[in-house]
Design a binder for these strands. Structure first.
Lengths: 209, 209
DNA sequence: TGTACATCAGTGAACGCGCGTTCACTGATGTAC
DNA sequence: TGTACATCAGTGAACGCGCGTTCACTGATGTAC
C-alpha cells in the first residue's frame, strides 16, 4: 500500500544532496562565481559529467542552495516575531545565534551571494527576503502597537527588522570565523544586537506621537 | 623650483589607474574571486606580465579598489552627520543617492566584496567601515541629544546608522540595475530610507526615558 | 514468478581553450659627472 | 650641454594545468505482459 520512492530515485536524491553539501563546503572560502563544476564533482567523488544529471550549471546549484538555506526558516521567524512583549527581541537574537551556530555555512552563503556575482542567485535571495519581510509585517500587524499604522509603514519597519537580523547573523558569523572564537565575543554581539533592536522598537512606539 | 613627478612615474600611475578602472568594470558582472589577471590586462591593452609591475595578485588589486572606493568618502560622511536637526537625514539620503549615481561600480564592489570570497579585501572593507562608525560616533557625540549616553551606546547607534546607509546605497543601486531605471523607483527608496532613519532617530530620542 | 525491453544515473575518453607564472628581453627615462 | 651607465615599465614566448562540454557507453533499476 505504502508508496516507496524507488531505489533509483532515492539514490539520485542522495547524490544531489551530496552535490549541495560539497558545494556549500567549498563556498566557505570562495564565492559562487568562481566555483568550478569539476571542483564540486571531485569533492563528491563522481565523474564531472555526473553534474549535468542534476544541475544545468553552478548557478542552478546556487539557486537550489538558496532554497535549502532559507526555505525552512520561515515558520521559525514567524513564530519568533509572533512572541509578544519584551521577550520578542531576546528570542529573536537567540534564534539568530542558534541558527548561525547550527548552520554557519548556509548563513555565510546567503550573506556572500546576496550581492554576489550570479544574477539568478541574487534574485532568489531577494525573493526569499521579500517573503520574510511580508511575514514579519503580517505578524507585526497583529500587535496592538500596530494600530494606526499604514501598510506601507509596517512593511518599511519589517524590512528594517529583516535587514537587522541579517546584519546580526553576519556578525555572529564573524565571531565563529575569528582565529579564537570566544563565548565572550558572541555575548558582545548579542548585547549590541539586542540594544539595536530595542532602539528600533522604541522608535516604533513613538512613531505616531 | 616645482617638483615634477617624472615621466616614468607619471606613466606608471596612469597604467595603474587603468588597471583599477578596467577591473572595476569587469567586476560589475562577477566577483573578485573569479576575476582573472589576464582578463584585466586584456581590458587594459597590455601584456599579462605587466600586471605584476603594479600588483602581486588580484586580491592586492582588490584592496587598492577598497581604498579608492571608500577612502575619499570620510570627509563627506563627517560633514553630513555634522548637520544639525531634521535636515541631517534629508542630506544623508541625498548624499547616498548622489554617490550611488556618480559611482555605481564602486558601491557595487563594496556591497559585493564586503562578504565576498577574498579575505584581505573583506578585512580592508571592515576596517574602513569601522572608521566610518568611529567618525559618525564622534559627530553624534557633539549633539545635545547625546548627553547621558555611554560611549558604547553611541558606537552601537553609529553602527546602526552606517549599516543603514549601506543598505540604502545598495537599494539605490538596484534601482539603477533594473531593466527600466526610473526616477520614481529612486524616490521610493529615498522615501523609505528617510523614514527608516527617522524611526531610528525617534528611538534615539527616547533611549534614556 | 519470469522474461524481454526501456529508462536513465553515472562513466571515461577526448576536445579546444584560457589560465597564472617564469624568464630573458628591450628601449625609454633617469642620473652622475 | 653631452656622454656613459643604471633603472625599470612593459614585452612576448613558453610552460604545465585544470577548465566546461560533447559523446557514446554501461549496467542497475523499472515496467509491461
Amino acid at each position: 500500500m505504502s508508496h516507496t520512492v524507488g531505489i533509483r530515485q532515492a539514490q539520485k536524491q542522495k547524490t544531489r544532496q551530496a552535490f549541495l553539501d560539497a558545494a556549500l563546503g567549498l563556498l566557505e572560502e570562495q564565492s559562487l562565481s568562481s566555483l568550478g563544476l569539476r571542483e564540486v564533482t571531485r569533492a563528491v567523488g563522481v565523474a564531472p559529467t555526473a553534474f549535468y544529471r542534476h544541475f544545468r550549471s553552478t548557478a542552478d546549484l546556487g539557486v537550489a542552495l538558496v532554497d535549502e538555506a532559507l526555505g525552512s526558516l520561515h515558520p521559525m521567524v514567524r513564530t519568533t516575531v509572533a512572541t509578544p512583549g519584551a521577550e520578542r527581541i531576546t528570542r529573536a537574537v537567540r534564534l539568530i545565534a542558534d541558527h548561525v551556530a547550527a548552520h554557519p555555512a548556509h548563513v555565510r552563503f546567503i550573506a556572500r551571494e546576496r550581492h554576489g556575482g550570479v544574477q539568478p542567485v541574487r534574485q532568489a535571495i531577494r525573493e526569499q527576503l521579500a517573503r520574510f519581510a511580508e511575514e514579519v509585517k503580517t505578524e507585526l500587524a497583529k500587535d496592538p502597537e500596530a494600530e494606526g499604522w499604514s501598510d506601507e509603514d509596517l512593511l518599511m519597519l519589517a524590512h528594517l527588522y529583516v535587514d537587522q537580523m541579517l546584519i546580526t547573523a553576519s556578525l555572529f558569523l564573524e565571531t565563529l570565523e575569528s582565529p579564537e572564537p570566544s563565548e565572550a565575543a558572541r555575548q558582545r554581539v548579542a548585547h549590541i544586537a539586542t540594544r539595536q533592536m530595542r532602539l528600533i522598537s522604541l522608535g516604533r512606539q513613538h512613531w505616531l506621537d
